[in-house]
Design a binder for these strands. Structure first.
Lengths: 218, 218
DNA sequence: CGATTTATTGAAATAAATCAAACATTGTGG
DNA sequence: CCACAATGTTTGATTTATTTCAATAAATCG
């Protein structure tokens, strides 16, 4: 993670409406950098918009989600630094993507033409695997199993260190795991009481017992 | 998926499930037909086996699932006649595939070489979309919502007719929706009482109120 | 036809949701 | 720097949906 993750992305270029992307003032014009900066909560793309771009996260984190008719939100995936996303099956997006925190995103352009498939396939495969994993987590019943699987996954993606940084809120986690914030919070507390994790603060977890974590997540 | 593993491939293609179309075995030998017959419960491939084949269902139905450490089973997908499956991200299968009923399966061979991607990509996309949909269903909480979404999907895939045939057991449905058989059964009963469906028999559903079905499934 | 599996129904236990409040953290303006 | 609002998190009490345990009923098979 870079130093500029948390909240001081506000070099304060403008008084911005939350939800609008912040574009950097193009300081290094060797070649036109296609990196956009988004502040927390800013929309990267919306359902219904034309799809086809691939995005790579420079720093920050992204949630990809769908809104249901009654207002509920199901988060389908989180994406962290260096990960790719935006890849979807249809010509228009089925999901929304938002920056969770201040986030820098590089838009990758695909080669037009016949070898687009060769570029896209690995991404499709990766998406598929991720989605299948998440599916198995949601199929598991208990809140503890869902949360431990989530933590194990986040730790994995951050290099298996004992210290896991959670860039997202409890609400995000809840909407990702199909739980409520209260249950997520209580489950964190339970894992803490069992000395499986330590809560440095609400967004920083130290993993104390990997075995217990992996046991109950698989 | 080599020689007869468990219960498959009795050279006895004839006493098939009543009500299922019986295809005459290999009557057009212009090219070698690679169709295998599987009886109910027969394994098509197992987790850990080398992957890479694509399968098309001639008749019957297939469940694709994963076994958890404690014996629970999470079904990731069902596949019906004419559908393709077997496509996975890794070089070895992460899932098991079994015939639900007597099932005929054609093994498709991919072109080796560079345009394999072009063949695989649409399949990956299709798998991805299906998996994402299922993910959203599991993320939604209530049993009614899960079951109505499931029924709507099955109806859709069978041509939106009012009569939906369920080739799988209640246990299969439960393992697919992350519920118990009892809850599945009770939920069927509830939908029946509300005149949303009619249970011709346990495997044959008539949809009486599409609106209610779609309302509660989206 | 009896035997075995599969499905439904009932009653009790339980995990998670809901309703409600306290607590912590962050940012803002005086 | 402090008071204060705003937001996010934790905790508590209660309700509800689903699981679990148990039994019956229906369908399937030899």
């Amino acid at each position: 993670m870079l130093a500029s993750t948390s909240a001081q992305m506000h070099v304060r270029p403008h008084p911005l409406v939350p939800g609008k992307p912040v574009y950097a003032p193009a300081h290094t014009p060797a070649r036109p950098q296609i990196i956009s900066f988004f502040r927390a909560g800013a929309e990267i793309y919306a359902a219904g918009e034309p799809a086809g771009n691939i995005y790579q996260i420079e720093f920050g984190a992204v949630r990809v989600f769908r809104l249901l008719a009654d207002g509920r939100r199901q988060i389908g995936a989180f994406h962290l630094a260096n990960e790719l996303f935006g890849f979807e099956a249809d010509v228009t997006h089925e999901f929304f993507a938002e920056a969770i925190n201040a986030t820098g995103i590089r838009r990758l352009r695909l080669n037009a033409g016949e070898d687009a498939s060769r570029e896209l396939l690995p991404l499709a495969l990766r998406s598929l695997t991720t989605t299948q994993k998440h599916l198995l987590v949601l199929g598991r019943h208990s809140a503890v199993e869902r949360l431990t699987a989530f933590l194990a996954d986040m730790a994995e993606r951050q290099g298996r260190t004992d210290h896991v940084c959670l860039p997202m809120s409890r609400l995000d986690i809840a909407d990702y795991l199909g739980l409520t914030i209260e249950t997520v919070s209580r489950t964190f507390t339970r894992l803490k009481e069992q000395q499986i994790i330590r809560l440095v603060d609400s967004r920083n977890i130290e993993i104390l017992k990997w075995s217990a974590l992996l046991d109950s997540s698989e």
